[in-house]
Design a protein around this nucleic acid. Structure first.
Ligand code: DUT
Ligand code: MG
Length: 782
DNA sequence: GCGCAGCTATG
DNA sequence: CATAGC
DNA sequence: GCGC
């Protein structure tokens, strides 16, 4: 792939004459593959060191005195975590720079990328005096000399190897011809318009931190609004490597756990178990990864793949994205392709996602003097074709193919489409074109709430007892939403009412719904989910059109539907992949067994889950808050032993397959227990624990790997051979504990029954009112 | 060389 | 079936 | 395109 395409794409400026041509970037991004981790920022990173409880002062780090320069709450971010670990290892860590004493300065993510910033940091220290417990008054003005300034990766590495690693490789490079410090936002005011093009999780107060114990105490975060680049430090190449790759001889419970994990890891290197929802590594370094430019370049290529479309483009897009994400995760700046080659050879884990394709692009990129912005080639009069394609695709329902057709017919701008292209478009495209200026904007969260309420009101008037819930980015707590995704559940027993069509009709007649993009097909079948997609507008002056999706599901599917519709898309992909690796199929209607021979869904094998939580449990997963449902990296990165990648198992090999499965069972069970224990004991998992406890779930799981699982809905279950079935399935279910999700306390109260069976006593009545699942918005146990 | 989530509506 | 979107 |  030629980089010049990218240049064309990126550099073509908005045309003066043609008002609508090549406009500002729009949020629209469709038809993507699974994302290689996008830009979310997540939570709490955890990690344990073997010497944890060992007496301090004599660890591997005695004699070191670090000055940690961090932005955000140090106690809460990962630097904080690293700090504690480091102290446990005998090192000294403070936020003060003490000439003559300080041996290393550690800069956190937010400061690592720019020397100037770091310098500012030292001069502006006063502003940060509430960081930790010190009126930090350090070397004002200039950067101290002689003391190495390193990225926090250095700390991670030291901790990982439990020895003092040379600082060289982690030194932050001073000269740094200053890669774009783009009108850098002062750390203090990071406010952003609520209708920005990027969503943040800034319902933060409401739904996030509630559970982070360390946060409560003293420090408040610097930024007022949500989004702090929370010094959210992590042991970058996160824990997995650290833990499994068994560090030194461990002691203590924690260490034991880790070693056990290591054993498992011996067979399956990737037993991270903790990641997933939480820390979103890709943005770990925030908007200022040392490799931002290179990563952006790769992301640009990804985008380019998408706009050009074609066979496999979806996967190309994903590929570039994951390479970009990997690069962003690197704490050290790559200035020479050789550095990457080394990493790929010596520490492949850290650069997972960067393959030959990306290497090729990076070679070219680095060669041509990175800082130097790529030739501002185009921007010329004939708009770059790619730019046009991209522009057209910002209109709903116009994809790569249609965009090219339009281009071939001479269209060059939105305006062209409006004046002479209308009859080239489908009805859906016409609607989206009409409303384009409105629809392309994201709406503030509050407006999404109003829209939800508007729908709810009418729905309830038509069908008392109905439940409506906005899902999607709204339920994930985002501060702005691209559309509103409303889910509807009629009261049980009324699944056959025509309320859905009535609702749409009513909303249309009142003028709330202005356009229809898609409606359920044909003759309507009771008990079947129904979907409306369209455009709506709240009454009143100054309101603009918004995309609205409404879906109705019967009660038996509702939990699955909520899970699906809450997303994120990446999260769904990962979770479904995980389910698949266990021989199951998860979709918006249920969780089913899959016949390993045919690859088909086993009839009547659906698990009965009335609440979202039941679905997590059924998969052996710990609950994940909606706000944390981000999905980490492509599932392919975790695929390692995902059993039959899905090909049906040939009859001939069935025997050995079963044997294998059976064998695995024992050790798998053990593994399960370990994990349970891990979750139970690991203090960093207080969050999860708290949630579990509050849900009254823990009692049910006390080690009992029991129950559940078993034959799905008796009937159609084992139709490919009753023999080893439940066991096989059990084995399948347990066999893959991959890194996508923390696999926790067994099956708990879920029951795998025929789809009909009203799931077991839905244990805790409250269920959802834990931390911010958006419970305040959820009228029902989800 | 294979698989990459799983599904719906439109034309 | 291909395309686009959730 | 990436991992296996
Ligand atoms: O490829 C996809 C796209 C979406 N979804 C699910 C998850 C997603 O959260 C939900 C709603 O889709 P939407 O496109 O509205 O995404 P969102 O998460 O709500 O973000 P936005 O704020 O852009 O609407 O549908 C998927 O499972 N797969
Ligand atoms: Mg949405």
């Amino acid at each position: 792939m030629d980089i010049r395409y990218l240049e064309d794409l990126l550099c073509s400026a908005p045309k003066g004459s043609r008002s609508n041509a090549v406009a500002a970037p729009s949020p629209k991004r469709k038809n993507r593959p699974r994302g290689g981790a996008s830009g979310d920022n997540g939570g709490i990173e955890t990690n344990k060191r073997p010497w944890k409880r060992a007496g301090a002062a004599s660890g591997p780090f005695s004699g070191l005195s670090l000055c940690v320069v961090s932005q955000g709450s140090v106690t809460n971010n990962t630097v904080g975590t690293l700090t504690r670990e480091f102290r446990d290892g005998g090192g000294q860590v403070s936020t003060h720079y003490t000439p003559g004493d300080t041996t290393h300065i550690v800069a956190d993510a937010s400061l690592a990328a720019s020397w100037e910033k770091l310098d500012d940091y030292f001069s502006g220290w006063d502003d940060f005096e509430d960081v930790v417990d010190g009126a930090a008054t350090a070397g004002r003005g200039r950067m101290p000399d002689g003391v190495p300034v390193v990225s926090s990766e250095w700390m991670s590495e030291c901790l990982r190897r439990s020895e003092v690693v040379t600082a060289e490789a982690y030194r932050l490079t001073p000269p740094l011809h200053h890669c774009a410090a783009p009108a850098t936002v002062a750390p203090k005011q990071q406010q952003r318009s609520s209708t920005a093009t990027t969503e943040t999780n800034a319902a933060a107060e409401g739904c996030s931190s509630s559970a982070s114990p360390a946060a409560t105490g003293k420090k408040r975060i610097l930024t007022s609004g949500g989004h702090q680049t929370t010094g959210g430090l992590v042991a970058t190449r996160n824990q997995r490597g650290d833990a499994a790759r068994g560090s030194p001889s461990g002691r203590g419970a924690a260490a034991r756990l880790m070693n056990l994990e290591g054993e498992v890891g011996a067979r399956k290197p990737n037993v991270d178990m903790r990641r997933v929802s939480q820390g979103q590594p890709s943005s770990f370094w925030g908007p200022q990864s040392p490799n931002k430019e290179a990563a952006d370049m790769l992301d640009g290529l990804a985008e380019l793949c998408a706009t050009r479309g074609g066979d496999g483009s979806v996967f190309n897009e994903r590929g570039f994205k994951s390479a970009a994400a990997a690069l962003r995760m690197l704490g050290t700046q790559i200035t020479d392709i050789e550095q990457l080659k080394d990493l790929r050879k010596n520490d492949p884990e850290r650069v997972r996602g960067v393959g030959d394709g990306a290497m090729k692009e990076l070679t070219a990129f680095l060669a041509e003097g990175k800082g130097k912005s790529r030739a501002p080639v185009s921007g010329a009069d004939p708009p770059a074709p790619e730019a046009c394609l991209k522009l057209f695709q910002e209109v709903g329902w116009v994809g790569a193919v249609k965009a090219r057709q339009l281009y071939d017919k001479g269209m060059r701008s939105i305006e062209d489409l409006r004046t002479s292209g209308r009859d080239l478009l489908t009805e859906q495209m016409r609607v989206c074109l009409n409303r384009h200026e409105d629809i392309k904007q994201r709406m503030p969260r509050s407006e999404a709430a109003e829209i939800e309420a508007a729908v709810t009101k009418v729905a309830q008037s038509i069908c008392p007892g109905v439940i409506c819930q906005a899902c999607g980015s709204y339920r994930r707590g985002k501060s702005n939403c691209g559309d509103v995704d409303v889910l509807i559940r009629p009261p049980e027993g009324q699944e056959d009412s025509p309320m859905f069509l009535e609702l749409i009709k009513e909303l249309t007649e009142t003028g709330f719904i202005t356009d229809r993009l898609a409606m359920p097909e044909g003759p309507y079948t009771p008990g079947k989910p129904q979907t409306f997609m369209g455009v709506c507008k709240l009454p009143g002056e100054g309101q603009i059109h918004r995309r609205l999706d409404v879906k109705l599901y019967p009660t038996s599917m509702f939990a699955f539907a909520v899970l699906y519709f809450t997303g994120s898309g990446d999260f769904n992909m990962n979770m479904r992949c995980f389910a698949k690796s266990k021989g199951l199929k998860l979709n918006d209607k249920g969780l089913f067994k899959v016949d390993p021979f045919s690859g088909e869904e086993v009839p009547n094998s659906g698990y009965s889950c009335l609440r979202e939580e039941d679905v997590f449990s059924a998969l052996g997963m710990d609950w994940i808050e909606p706000k944390d449902r981000k999905g980490v990296g492509p599932a392919s990165h975790n695929q390692q032993e995902a059993l039959p990648q899905h090909q049906a198992i040939p009859m001939a090999e069935a025997g050995s397959y079963y044997e294998n499965a059976e064998q695995q069972m024992q050790q798998q069970q053990q593994m399960m227990m370990q994990q349970q224990a891990e979750v139970f004991f690991r203090e960093e998992d207080q969050v999860q624990q708290a949630i579990c406890l509050s849900r009254g779930v823990f009692d049910a799981s006390g080690g009992s790997v029991a129950a559940a699982a078993a034959g799905g809905g008796g009937a159609g279950a084992a139709n490919y051979d009753g023999s080893a079935d439940p066991d096989l399935q059990e084995a399948l279910r347990r066999s893959v504990a991959d890194t996508r999700f923390a696999v926790g306390g067994g099956e708990r109260e879920v029951v795998a029954g025929g789809s009909g069976s009203t799931a077991t006593a839905a244990s805790s009545a409250e269920g959802n009112n834990g931390v911010g699942t958006g419970s305040e918005h959820s009228p029902v146990c989800l």
